[in-house]
Design a protein around this nucleic acid. Structure first.
Lengths: 170, 170
DNA sequence: GGGGATAGCATGGGAATTTATGGGATACAA
DNA sequence: TTGTATCCCATAAATTCCCATGCTATCCCC
């Protein structure tokens, strides 16, 4: 599971260290029957100026998801083109670094420092400054929606969800 | 798994370098019991002015798929004629190039530069300019449909999911 | 608990290898 | 011959590999 936020430097050759946590995560996915690729897979988000990534296991999950859709569903084709076609395999060097292709660095406006954002099954790569505002608004929105963060497993006593009533204060 | 997009030049002799990633991909499929053919298999798409291709393993998958259909299902026969009959075996030279038959280059309107599009189990070959518009609209459609890109697999806690997305980014 | 040893991580720079590409030589067919 | 396809070699650029170093967190021993 990809967790935590981590900022590393992007050197003159376009190399950046992948957080050690992330490396063991993709390694774990790899052992369980996936290929022999030791690295991460990264593509430009189609939702903003940042990169998305994960291990080969994540891509296999997406592949399975897409292969359950109609082969000529326009959305399926769009996802294949937006994710598979735009993604790059970045393999680790002996020190756990990857070299980030120029196009990807330019897309996400990365220079000097890059921030890895662990998000469970996948992660994102941001320009640290750009991520700051995201982080702030995410906290705000999480607070406003906190009543939706209800773990299942136990029975839900009250019929209504919102719990604390009005909740969403500023 | 075929990933990423890669534009290479088609020289005066009709040769083009197959991306190194793709070469190892078809090589991997080849080791696991398939034939000794070292190259790719390409045919004109029946859905547009581009080529489709893959390793010998992909063709075996199509064969298995078609053999599950009724032998005289018209669609089966059509698929066999449109894929198997139109496909060409393109073997690598010592530098990882293939020479693209003229008919195929003409069909896809390829000259000068050709773009390989990795799409998971298979790939496509496009005229780079023609692919540009495809790519742009694919990104737009992927963004509009991003709520459909929901990975299953783990328990689904709440009855309703992220349906319309949280709208987090903006 | 203090202090030093140790291991892992992030980073920098140079060397060696791979990749993509062009061109010539050779074999084969029309 | 002429055109076509295949093979071989050369080269420039890009990428990967390898080694060294500073830093930090952890461990161990006294």
């Amino acid at each position: 599971m990809f967790l935590s936020r981590n900022t590393n430097t992007l050197d003159a050759k376009g190399r950046v260290s992948v957080p050690a946590d992330f490396r063991v995560e993709v390694g774990a996915g790899r052992e369980s029957g996936a290929g022999i690729f030791d690295g991460i897979i990264v593509w430009p988000s189609f939702d903003g100026p940042y990169l998305e990534g994960g291990g080969i296991a994540l891509l296999r999950d997406y592949q399975a998801l897409l292969e359950n859709m109609d082969p000529y569903d326009d959305a399926r084709i769009a996802f294949e083109r937006a994710i598979f076609a735009e993604s790059r395999r970045l393999s680790f060097d002996a020190n756990g670094r990857v070299s980030l292709p120029k196009e990807l660095a330019e897309y996400a406006e990365l220079n000097g420092q890059v921030t890895f954002i662990g998000l469970g099954r996948r992660f994102e790569i941001w320009n640290p400054a750009k991520y700051e505002s995201q982080s702030a608004s995410a906290r705000k929105m999480a607070r406003e929606n906190r009543h939706r963060l209800r773990l299942a497993g136990h029975r839900n006593i009250s019929g209504d969800g919102a719990g604390t009533g009005t909740g969403a204060a500023s």
